[in-house]
Design a protein around this nucleic acid. Sequence first.
DNA 1: GTTGAATCTGACAATTTGTCAACATTCAAC
DNA 2: GTTGAATGTTGACAAATTGTCAGATTCAAC
Lengths: 220, 220
Amino acid sequence: MTNNHAHQDGDNATLTIDGSEEAAAPAPSKRRLESRKRILAAARKLFVERGYHATRPQDISKLAGVGHGTFYLHFADKFDCFLSFAEDASAELEAFIEEHLADVNTLDEGIREVLKAIFEFSAENAGVLAAALTDINVLATGETDKKMPVDRWAEQWADIVRKWSEEGVAAADVDPMFAGHFIVGIIRQGGAYAHRAGIDQAEAIEKMSRAITRTLRPNN
Amino acid sequence: MTNNHAHQDGDNATLTIDGSEEAAAPAPSKRRLESRKRILAAARKLFVERGYHATRPQDISKLAGVGHGTFYLHFADKFDCFLSFAEDASAELEAFIEEHLADVNTLDEGIREVLKAIFEFSAENAGVLAAALTDINVLATGETDKKMPVDRWAEQWADIVRKWSEEGVAAADVDPMFAGHFIVGIIRQGGAYAHRAGIDQAEAIEKMSRAITRTLRPNN
DNA sequence: GTTGAATCTGACAATTTGTCAACATTCAAC
DNA sequence: GTTGAATGTTGACAAATTGTCAGATTCAAC
């Protein structure tokens, strides 16, 4: 728990080694990055398969093919590892969505495309989304400089809603930040329900996009 | 993990002791119920304060004033205890909301009252709501006969929406089950954001109820 | 008071987490 | 190619936690 080697600045791959805070340390070696990558891949697999409770650091390091102590050189503890997994998954989802939004302009089309991308991502990465968007504060309380993936996502939606509002596409009385969070809530809950209930994807997308557009533009 | 003494049927206080499945065992004694109650109270406090990761069974039993082994007489493990805590909290919230819905008839008024009740409950039980509604599957996978609190809640909303739909208060094209989940998503996400951002309660309620009514009744 | 069932306790076994000295690998300078 | 410093890893073992259960305590019935 006092091991400083695992101290990281968010997603930035640059390590800041304690005792030399003025100068950024050189980029980590290929080997180090490879080890970290393998650990995270193993962690992802196990967190999704077994859940947080039953996943042990020793299982992660074994599956990753690294020594048990290596786990602690990269992460402070299981929670820290989970957080990185969640952040990585969240970033992947965001990138995935960006690709699908490249040629989209209208609000309706945009929402529909995002939902499609989310379902597609979920199909290829079963269980990852729920983990990525879980309430981190339920797992561990206290100050963390890392922003929860779900909040980051909601803020991105807020930016989009703000833009739509300026273009007159979304209603003027819509609070972008709240709207961003509502959209995330609808997607999280609706998506989880659709998946669990085995509901047809097209149907789910239809219903979710309708609900979302209605919160943004009531006269629909 | 093979200790059958902690085998429980949901919330029902009646124990079924293995080996005598045909006959229900007598109700647990006051002492047993008292111990369980104390353990759950301690668990609640610690899960909320420290989060799941940092809460240890030994801390729970100590705070509860019972022996360390007593914890395992009541719960299979930490997760099992968490699940019971979440279920209890969820049931409390539901009861709290019921009280506040007693004299309510219109859709708008109903939603507003529910939101008020939720904020009130959250103020008196900081952190409990998030824990109660968290994604259990992220903590532990596998078959469980217990329904997630958040799903139960969404289903109750679905019943309400169904009723509103029949009365022509909610739009006919609204799918009650999806709507129930959307409402829960909006409340969860919107409530968490409002709390974290220190937003005025009246403002939050206004924005959340507006979003909810718009998903149910677009011409608003 | 005695009996026996129910329930609890905490010592200890079993398991897991976390540490770090020793070792292995990499890489730049020569 | 060799050298030596820097970096990264390993797994034995210390420390901590989880889980078990023989013995202790409680309580209701007689």
